Amino acid sequence: MYILIAAALCLLAGFIWLYNLLVRQWQMVNNGWADIDVQLKRRSDLVPRLVDVVRAYASHERSLFEDIAEKRSLAEIAGEDPVRRAAAEGAFSRPVTRLLALAQAYPDLKASLNFSGLQNELVDTENQIEMARRFYNGAVRELNTTVQSFPANLAAPMIGFSPRDYFEFASGERETPHVRLPPT
């Protein structure tokens, strides 16, 4: 009788430990996603300012400005699904890269302090996105490993835990904007 009670208590303690482990890992993933979301919104807010500066020098690039606005809107409505969001952000990055390349064709724009300041902010934001993405994907890896390992793979689905998607860009889908900063 005592053996059955002891076994039941051990099983209960193991279940509680496993549940708490999964909750901690789930929250790390949520935290990582929130960090990515903040940085993506920061980039999304920077781009219109960059467009305004470029528009002053290259107003005839209307189709590029419209493409940026469209892709930015699609990225903002992609939501919390990492796979959809990565695809939308990848599509958004392509016209932004073309926008930055315009600076090479306009020496006055390239020399503009406002433009170079926004370029610096964009470079910093891209670095922050990359760091947040690495943290998030590491947290997802830990959670997915736990959820898919025995004995958690038996209990996790019953208590509402499942593997999460990584936030990654398809090969060649997203080009990080290459920014050449003027020498100081």
Rank of each mutant, 00 (worst) to 15 (best):
L102R: 08
T176I: 13
N20L: 08
L11T: 14
I68P: 07
N30Q: 07
L100W: 03
L21D: 09
Q128C: 09
A7N: 05
G160K: 13
L143A: 08
Q27E: 10
A111T: 09
T97V: 04
R134P: 08
F15L: 10
R180M: 04
V54H: 13
D67L: 14
L40W: 04
L143D: 03
T184S: 15
S149H: 12
R98W: 03
A69F: 07
D35K: 15
Q119C: 13
E61G: 11
V123R: 13
R133G: 05
G117R: 00
G14L: 09
A87G: 13
A155C: 07
K41C: 02
A155V: 11
E168L: 06
E80S: 14
R134L: 10
Y106V: 12
L99S: 08
V38H: 02
T184E: 15
E126V: 03
V53I: 06
T145I: 01
I68T: 08
V140C: 09
T125F: 01
A75S: 14
I68H: 08
N144M: 07
P183E: 10
I159P: 10
I129P: 03
A75K: 11
E126M: 09
R134D: 04
R72Q: 07
T184G: 15
S116V: 00
E175M: 11
L46R: 10
Y106C: 07
F15T: 10
A8Y: 00
N144H: 03
K71N: 05
L50V: 00
R55S: 08
L181R: 12
D108L: 12
A69D: 03
A155Y: 01
P157M: 04
E121W: 03
L154C: 02
S171V: 01
T146L: 03
V53F: 02
L40N: 09
D45N: 11
I16N: 12
A88N: 05
G79R: 06
I36R: 11
G14A: 13
S44C: 10
W17R: 08
Q119T: 00
E61I: 04
P183R: 15
E130C: 08
L18P: 02
R141S: 08
Q104D: 06
G90V: 08
W17A: 15
N137T: 06
Y2W: 06
D81G: 05
E76L: 15
T184P: 15
P157K: 10
I68V: 10
A56L: 09
L143Y: 00
A58S: 13
P163Y: 00
M131A: 15
L143C: 03
M131Q: 14
R94H: 05
I129Y: 04
F115I: 00
E126C: 09
A91F: 07
F169D: 10
S73N: 12
Y166I: 05
E130G: 13
A103W: 01
G90Y: 01
R174E: 03
S73R: 14
Y166T: 11
I159V: 05
S171I: 03
N127S: 13
Q148H: 03
D124V: 01
N20P: 03
F167I: 10
R24A: 14
